[in-house]
Design a protein around this nucleic acid. Sequence first.
DNA 1: ACCTATAATTTGTATATACAAATAAATAAT
DNA 2: ATTATTTATTTGTATATACAAATTATAGGT
Lengths: 152, 152
Amino acid sequence: MQILFLYLCGMKASESRFCKCMYFSSNALARKIEKLALESWKPVNLSPSHAYLLMMVLDEPGIQPMALVDELQLTPSTITRLIEKLEEKKLVVRTTEGKLTNVYPTPKAKEMQAKLKECSKEFYEKYATALGPDESARLVVSMNKIADKLGK
Amino acid sequence: MQILFLYLCGMKASESRFCKCMYFSSNALARKIEKLALESWKPVNLSPSHAYLLMMVLDEPGIQPMALVDELQLTPSTITRLIEKLEEKKLVVRTTEGKLTNVYPTPKAKEMQAKLKECSKEFYEKYATALGPDESARLVVSMNKIADKLGK
DNA sequence: ACCTATAATTTGTATATACAAATAAATAAT
DNA sequence: ATTATTTATTTGTATATACAAATTATAGGT
């Protein structure tokens, strides 16, 4: 409300607490969403990132790390670490040919697929209920647009 | 654009990649903003969180950790850690009376104040240039509203 | 064919943050 | 007054992620 006030009365943002808020607001939102997601994927005992990565591997067996980097918007090193953990859990296997790596789901992962989808739905319902489907959709669009503009 | 597409054609979000995107979009945005902020406060050799906390202490000498928790939207333990580091750097001191703690800026911190403000401005200009002042303002309002609705 | 530049992946290490438990003090309930 | 509850803060530990450097491999230019 502090911010809304500033916005409405045209106060110069750089001299107020506004610019703090872009920083903390985006982080706070991300953490709250993270928490919601964490809960949603508890039934399969995976963190949201691991779950999404696994779903992508199930969707596209043999997918390569760089594709995961692009899709999940994480760095290569983070993707490697996520895959490692899923490998430990016997949910994926990696085959390396040359400089390329392929990631495949194991049978164990395939058995989980339905359950993963359910968690997905659970997550969606949690935030859509809180925000309304339209507003959530708008927000995602707007966040993506802006992240794109911030480049790289 | 994938998301925009889904949105525009009314596809059921819970069955698409959309719900992934709420998760990764909010995180990706936060990370990009973090990066921008990190650069902006390099001149004073502080992370954005440390810088903001310090600015609050300068603004309100004697401020207590719980007030910082509320304002910065971080957990008590994180606030303690941030203060510790600023103490190591001789930028703040803590006095404890009973269960309450007061945090005060040191003279060294007061000398930095102008420079801190400059970094703030720098940060604001970086993202406002990329996004336009109106759009950034709207986004902050919208993110806060939604974080509030997600509660606690 | 040979060297160089670029691309994919992994490894070592650092940062930001959280949760849960511990501590300690203040307040309320009897 | 004494005990129980709540509140503020700190500590131990874990997670998610990044950056920079190392490794390896492919592709291009000569």
